[in-house]
Amino acid sequence: MIEVRELVKTYAGRRVLDGLSFTAGPGRVTAFLGPNGAGKSTTLRMILGLGTPDAGSARVRGVPYAELRAPLHTVGALLDASACHPARSPRAHLSWLARTHRIDPARVNRVLALVGLESAARRPVRGFSLGMRQRLGIAVALLGDPEILLLDEPMNGLDPEGIQWLRGLLRALADEGRTVLVSSHLMQEMAVTADHVLVIGRGRVLADGALTSLVSAAADPPAVRIVTPRLEPLAHALREKGAEVTYGDGPGEATVTGLTGAHIGDIAARHGWSVHELTPVRPSLEEAYLRLTATAAEYRATAPEALAAHHGDARKETACHA
């Protein structure tokens, strides 16, 4: 259980967190989403006690992180996959961490095997790909067998097999009753992994709810996609029944709102018009997310002519290591 209450944090005059409150509960994977600069990494750092909020509090299992006496057994975190000395091996990196908590060295071997780094365990991290570094970061997070996991962009750099593996791992961890908070920009991936979605923008919560309700809320009003060789007359007939018809890009393609698929099919059948496709449009998490964050995106690509006038301090406060 992670409880964040009214967190406020200002960096160089910019309010990165602006009264952020949420609770991430056990037994589910919570997707932590938001545009670049929304405050995701800052929030994770405040939860871990690495920075001090101007106001508000972050608690894990009911206490501030700094009061945990053996924090690795409570919270496992992956903040930055490259956070390891380049000359050190994964085994050495995990070994010193294990020593701080008197974790059995055999556990180091187990997590190395779990993340698939056994064969590279003694090689310097210097030569590792981003995906291998992510695996090491995940091993670090899992080392203390924690009940809470905080993972910042863990899928970055993983190959398709690795992403699939991580998806299964996150699900398994949540099913064991752990609290799993994962930030990511990979919407399709989060849509199949998460149960709960937390979207933030400009340091505030934009949405906090079950994945299914968030996505279906974005499908309002519900739409139906049709493809028919008789689009003109059908569109006319549908509009007469009060529907809104928007022509699509392909021939005979349109999106209809205001009528159900059954209604549309019945009308077409009555006239003897064939319909080749009739599909309820299911909005994706990505669409729901983009709709939510449309106004809150901090750093958006601008048209080239606007570039000259736009000087932002577009530096993400983390992940900026020389």
Partner: peptide, 18 residues
Amino acid sequence: GNEYGTGMIRTTLAAVPR
């Protein structure tokens, strides 16, 4: 210096908050 340079200081302080 390498703790700060690599970002490992975060891992270190998360493991040893005192």
